[in-house]
Simulated scan of single mutants.
Amino acid sequence: MHLGVFTVLFSQKSWEDMLDLVANHGLKAVELGTGGYPGNSHCPLDELLDSRTKQQQFLAAIHSRGLRISALSCHGNPLHPQKAIAQEADQLLHKTLQLAEQLEVPVVNTFSGCPGDSDHALYPNWPVTPWPHDFQELLDWQWKEKVYPYWTQIGQVAQSRHVKIGLELHGGFSVHTPGTLLKLRERAGEAIGANLDPSHLWWQGIDPVQAIRILGRADAIHHFHAKDTAIDPINLPMHGVTDMQPYTKMVDRAWQFRTIGYGHDLKTWADIMSTLRLVGYDDVVSIEHEDGLMSIEEGFRRAVQNLQQVLISEPLHEMWWA
């Protein structure tokens, strides 16, 4: 396994400065945003598409520092009930898949999206309870009419371009658990997998180690985000795991994102790394830093330091003792 970083946290830095910073910290990969929620500070999608000269210059800057691109990321909601929003996300995804093929990047990360409650809705509707029965009927409609058709088509496009899709299991979207990911993958094909981020599993009450085992057995882990979550034992009974307070209200929230080692100890992260190796994921661990208690630089630096203690980086050999 190798350390990488989702470079959106360095959006204020220039392209060259960002690459130098990442390389100087001993990382081996960058995950680049092409638009949508992450923005495209370091990957001008339209400029790079179909321009072999610009692509070669772009890749040369990365490779000359001993880095590679682990994924292109275009998180958005292509199932949004407002057509203009959905179309923008859909076009971005198609362009990102095209660029990934041209740059020989193996994975495109995004969200599954979430539809509304009808073709006339204005906002997404995320059902989280099977009763009253209205919610179950809504969920069935969403998957049958929106989720399955869209992602089956995208899965075919991704497969034709020899690129994998990493869906982040994130609350508020149709695919947010290992079960919903496998449900979609069964219909949409093996190009669809997970960009597995433990931080979003912890607040849902899902053990990331077991999630890795579940998805790893299905060869459904396409990319991995390293981000931590701290659960507040005092605020949790008040607000529950679906706490809707802004992330900025850190004193009052039931849970909050933290950098690696500040939500769960390094033994937990060592178990995560070991289980990734156990199920055959031996690729990039991409740091995502959204810790409201630390600066960008400190949160990133501590994530690197802590992950370097538990990362399993050397190639696996035969068991000499067995």
Rank of each mutant, 00 (worst) to 15 (best):
M1A: 09
H2N: 11
T7N: 07
T7C: 14
L9N: 11
E16Q: 13
D17G: 01
V22L: 10
N24I: 12
H25N: 13
G26A: 07
A29G: 01
E31M: 05
G33H: 09
L45G: 03
D46A: 08
D46V: 03
T53M: 04
T53V: 07
Q56K: 12
Q57E: 15
L59E: 12
L59N: 06
L59H: 11
A61T: 07
I62F: 00
I62M: 00
I62D: 02
S64L: 10
G66H: 05
I69C: 01
C74F: 08
K83Q: 12
K83R: 15
A84S: 09
E88A: 15
D90F: 11
Q91D: 15
H94N: 08
K95E: 06
Q98F: 07
L103G: 00
E104K: 14
P106M: 05
N109T: 13
G113K: 09
C114M: 12
C114V: 08
G116M: 04
G116A: 04
S118C: 03
A121K: 07
Y123F: 13
N125G: 08
W126C: 08
P127V: 00
V128P: 01
T129Y: 14
D134T: 11
F135H: 15
Y150K: 05
W151V: 01
Q153F: 12
H170L: 01
F173W: 04
L182E: 11
L182N: 10
L182S: 03
K183M: 09
A191F: 01
A191L: 03
G193T: 12
W202H: 11
W203K: 13
I206W: 03
P208A: 10
V209N: 01
V209E: 01
Q210S: 06
A211S: 05
L215W: 07
G216A: 05
D219R: 15
A220H: 03
K227E: 05
T229N: 02
P233F: 08
L236K: 02
M238R: 09
D243L: 01
D243N: 04
M244D: 13
P246T: 12
Y247A: 11
A254K: 00
W255C: 03
Q256P: 00
Q256I: 11
G261P: 02
G263T: 15
H264W: 11
T268V: 14
D271N: 10
I272A: 00
T275V: 07
L276N: 03
Y281M: 08
D282I: 00
D291V: 10
M294C: 04
E297D: 13
R302W: 10
V304M: 00
S313D: 14
L316E: 11
E318M: 12
M319V: 15
W321V: 14
